[in-house]
Write a protein that binds this DNA or RNA. Structure first.
Lengths: 242, 242
DNA sequence: ATGTTGCTGTGATTCAAATCACATCTTCAC
DNA sequence: GTGAAGATGTGATTTGAATCACAGCAACAT
């Protein structure tokens, strides 16, 4: 156990162990990768990368959460992803473009670890198993994007909302005896931007869903879903697998 | 040159050579993979895979084109992808689910080559370079999905239509002296289903775009785009890279 | 506690797109 | 060629969501 000149807790925690992508690596490889990473912290609301920047590299969220968004032609903010703790981003656009295609902003106090593109390439070359894991991770993200496209193709707002809530149940929800408890990662405004609908419409529909007993709010950020199935029936997954 | 008991022309053409995914492989590897593939043909309108089926495997479109779609809760057909010649599908859902998540239907006479899941896995294990190519291919598809999500988050139909037309220009367009000539892969009904809007709305907006000289129709399936930039300005890419 | 600022719900109004309805125009089979 | 079935354009009407407007609330700093 030699001393390392790294300020963050990643080495002791071996934070990367929590990331499924690196699950196949042994402890030594993890240690070596960790020392190759740059570690940074961001306050709530701070921008991690800005659209058009040069890519930082493959970025793992060690602690905290973040949103990825673009500003549309009409000035609205379209949110594309919400990254929870232990999620990561940057793999996709390291392979496709010179400039970062969207901004990423911390939703709370957030610590990230960054692996530069050359290091990531080395890692993929030397550990083919990680390539396979990355393929699987990208496949999962594509699956999610496909579901979103589907839900956005749907005509009514309720469908989109239900699909989003279901996603949150599965990402941020904790099971309890009265159903799933979910802390929403965004304000109403943020949720509306995620769905690409107006904040007012979202408000009204949420009230309606609460009247219909599909959801219940403890406070504006905390929601209880007594019956996941009921929500699922309203979503794009109705009559669906998984 | 020994005789091979394979009816299709893949071996002589070495059709896989045209697929960027396999660009890094030498001739012998390609030959060996080709012999491992199953080859099938479909008439226009025939279903290649049906939602809920067991996955066929990784599928390359050797000749022809196809659409991937799901039927939504309200009975509409939501098109997710249009696969042109030399494109492929199936990699994503081999990694994520047991059942195929959407149906794929031939848009014309179409020939495909199918690599079973175990063979694909062997290939990825034995040729790490192919894994990297696959990651890149998936990254590109994700980029496209992200653009679609963005355009669907946009409020007006015109934006979505312009984004789709731009995609077609880049996929199916041929440059000529009067601009790009594009043969649309779908009927108006199909295009509307791709965008998740009503056929009538699409018709009206196309007429309007033609009045505004952004596009011109030679016949209902053939379009000329005199100025790609003009179209791009209407799309989600306005003020954008690439 | 007090004012300031931002977040949220809700009514009234407007508007873009869906729907309905129907008249061409194509395609294709026979 | 002729008729039938499907594809397309366009008007009239309806409708769901956006927008506008504002009041109540929570969070926070002083």
């Amino acid at each position: 156990m030699e001393k390392m000149p790294i300020s963050c807790a990643c080495l002791h925690d071996l934070c990367l162990m929590k990331v499924p992508l690196f699950a196949s690596l042994d402890r030594d490889s993890l240690l070596s990768i960790t020392t190759q990473m740059r570690h940074k912290s961001y306050a709530k609301g701070e921008t991690i990368i800005r659209e058009g920047d040069h890519p930082l590299g493959f970025t793992v969220i060690q602690q905290g959460s973040a949103k990825a968004y673009r500003i549309t032609a009409d000035g609205r903010e379209q949110i594309l992803y919400i990254f929870p703790t232990h999620d990561y981003f940057g793999a996709r656009f390291l392979f496709t473009e010179e400039a970062v295609p969207y901004s990423v902003e911390a939703l709370e106090e957030t610590h990230v670890c960054i692996l530069s593109k050359p290091r990531l390439m080395e890692l993929l070359a030397s550990h083919p198993q990680v390539s396979l894991e990355l393929i699987e991770a990208m496949a999962n993200r594509m699956r999610r994007l496909e579901l979103i496209v589907q839900s956005m193709g749907g005509r009514n707002a309720e469908l989109r909302i239900a699909s989003m809530l279901l996603e949150f149940v599965d990402t941020f929800g904790t099971a309890g005896k009265e159903g799933y408890r979910v802390t929403l990662p965004l304000s109403r405004e943020g949720l509306a931007n995620y769905l690409g609908i107006a904040r007012e419409t979202l408000s009204r529909k949420l009230t309606q869903l609460e009247e219909d007993q599909v959801i219940r709010f403890l406070d504006s950020r905390t929601m209880v879903v007594p019956d996941r199935e009921a929500l699922s029936r309203l979503s794009v997954l109705s009559s669906d697998q998984l």
